[in-house]
């Protein structure tokens, strides 16, 4: 099979659904809270779980793209947005330093722009991305700085602004995390935040994030396959249990 030289026409574009996992790798994430596992160890099981789930279906991998970013004092790309069938080995999150949400939001905007330019070049038509943002709270940067970076990432004029779904473990509170949801309550398709119940084990709770992410990947891919470009990201947390509020 050869690809035609003229196969770059707008009518030729394939559909693709990008997801980003963003993980707080501040030092506090490495301390086990009750269970045997630390939050970061649990976070490191998200990518393998989700990739296994995507690979279990013949066609899910055709439409889904997965990327991963970590953040501490700065933010770094852990996995450049890609077809999960190309990911080998699966990269790890490792802890370092403090907690800068601003750095994470800024890098996300930059990566999304870069990734979508690449997707367009590769002849894909992408839906707006979904970002699963996992943190144990207590950002160490200036609130005004975080707000500025968040506003830039979710600017209505930014066509690729992501659906932003924060997951809080440890000391993160609902009030703190609701600020970083996008789109917010009251908009047409609002997203939400998730905060771990008091006394739950962060490592166990994070395991659930992988399940929500995977069921959202499946629900979203189904919406695309059934509705073509009218489909898009679907947040599916039907199996959520009492570890999360």
């Amino acid at each position: 099979m050869t690809t035609s030289a003229t196969d770059t026409h707008g009518d030729d574009r394939l559909l693709v659904l990008p997801f980003y996992i963003v993980v707080d790798v501040s030092l506090s994430m490495s301390v086990p809270q009750g269970g045997d596992k630390s939050a970061i160890q649990a976070a490191n099981e998200i990518l393998p779980t989700v990739i296994d789930g995507i690979e279990a279906s013949p066609t899910l991998g055709d439409v889904v793209r997965l990327g991963a970013v970590d953040f501490s004092d700065d933010a770094r790309v852990v996995l450049r947005l890609d077809d999960v069938r190309n990911v080998n080995p699966i990269p790890q999150f490792t802890v370092r330093g403090a907690t800068s949400y601003a750095a994470a939001f800024r890098l996300l905007r930059q990566e999304i722009e870069k990734d979508y330019a690449q997707l367009r070049g590769d002849n894909y038509k992408a839906y707006r991305p979904a970002v699963f943002f996992i943190t144990d709270g207590e950002p160490t940067d200036d609130q005004a700085d975080i707000v500025a970076a968040y506003n830039d990432l979710t600017d209505p004029s930014f066509k690729l602004r992501p659906n932003l779904i924060p997951f809080g473990v440890g000391t993160a509170t609902k009030d703190q995390l609701d600020q970083w949801v996008y789109p917010k309550e009251g908009s047409k398709k609002p997203m939400r935040s998730y905060v771990m119940r008091d006394g739950a084990d962060p490592a166990k709770a994070i395991t659930k994030v992988a399940e929500i992410l995977l069921s959202s990947v499946i629900a979203s891919a189904q919406s695309v396959s059934e509705q073509g470009s009218a489909g898009g990201f679907v947040l599916d947390d039907e199996d959520l249990d009492s570890d999360w509020n």
């Binding site: 707008g10 030729d12 559909l15 073509g228």
Partner: peptide
């Protein structure tokens, strides 16, 4: 229906 309309687009591409 859009099952064929989405890959066809305006008809200017490879499916067209």
């Amino acid at each position: 229906t859009d099952g064929i309309g989405d890959p066809l687009g305006g008809g200017g591409g490879v499916v067209g």
